[in-house]
Amino acid sequence: MNIQWFPGHMTKAQRMIEDSIKLVDAVCEILDARIPNSSRNPDIDRLAAGKPRLIILNRVDLADPAVTAQWKKHFEAQGIKILETDAKTGKGVNGFVPALRELLADKISDYAAKGQASRPLRVMILGIPNVGKSTFINKVAKRKAAVAGDKPGVTRGKQWISIDRGLDLLDTPGILWPKFDSQEVGEMLAITNAIKADVLDKETLGANFMLRLREMYPDALTQRYKFVPDSDMNGYEMLEEAAKKRGFLVSKGEYDIERMANTLLGEYHDGKLGRISLEKPE
Rank of each mutant, 00 (worst) to 15 (best):
E184F: 05
R59Y: 07
D201T: 05
F248Y: 13
L126T: 04
L57I: 02
G92L: 12
G149F: 13
V140L: 15
A77N: 15
K12N: 02
V123N: 02
T85E: 05
D219W: 04
D19N: 00
D45P: 02
A87N: 06
T222H: 03
A66C: 04
V67N: 03
A242F: 07
G132K: 02
T89M: 06
K139E: 04
V24K: 00
K244F: 00
E102Y: 04
K51T: 06
I163S: 08
A99V: 07
P98C: 11
K88D: 07
F209S: 02
L100S: 03
K133S: 09
Y217S: 05
T222V: 10
F248C: 04
I125P: 02
W177I: 04
R224N: 01
L200K: 02
L104S: 05
N234G: 09
W160E: 14
L57F: 07
N41R: 08
E267Y: 01
T11S: 04
G157M: 08
P178V: 14
L176C: 05
P65F: 08
G206K: 03
A141V: 06
L103R: 05
F227Q: 00
M238V: 06
E29L: 01
N41M: 09
V27Q: 02
T135I: 09
P65I: 10
I80E: 13
R122I: 10
D232Y: 12
F6L: 07
H74N: 13
G174L: 12
L205G: 07
Q159M: 11
E279F: 04
I44C: 03
I3V: 03
V131T: 12
D64H: 04
I161N: 08
M188W: 05
G132N: 04
E76V: 13
K81I: 09
F209W: 11
E215T: 02
W160Y: 13
A99L: 08
E282S: 09
L103A: 05
V250H: 02
R53H: 07
M1E: 13
G132H: 05
T172K: 06
H74P: 01
D64M: 14
K144E: 15
G92H: 05
P152I: 09
K133T: 10
E241Y: 00
L47V: 10
N94R: 14
G174D: 11
D25Y: 01
K107G: 02
A197V: 14
D86F: 09
L221Y: 00
I108S: 00
E241F: 00
P120E: 06
R275N: 15
A33S: 08
L200D: 08
K158E: 14
T263K: 03
E241K: 10
T11E: 00
A148K: 12
A69T: 12
R40M: 11
P173I: 11
A69S: 12
I163G: 08
K196N: 12
G274M: 15
A197D: 15
I56C: 04
F248V: 06
Y255E: 09
A69Y: 01
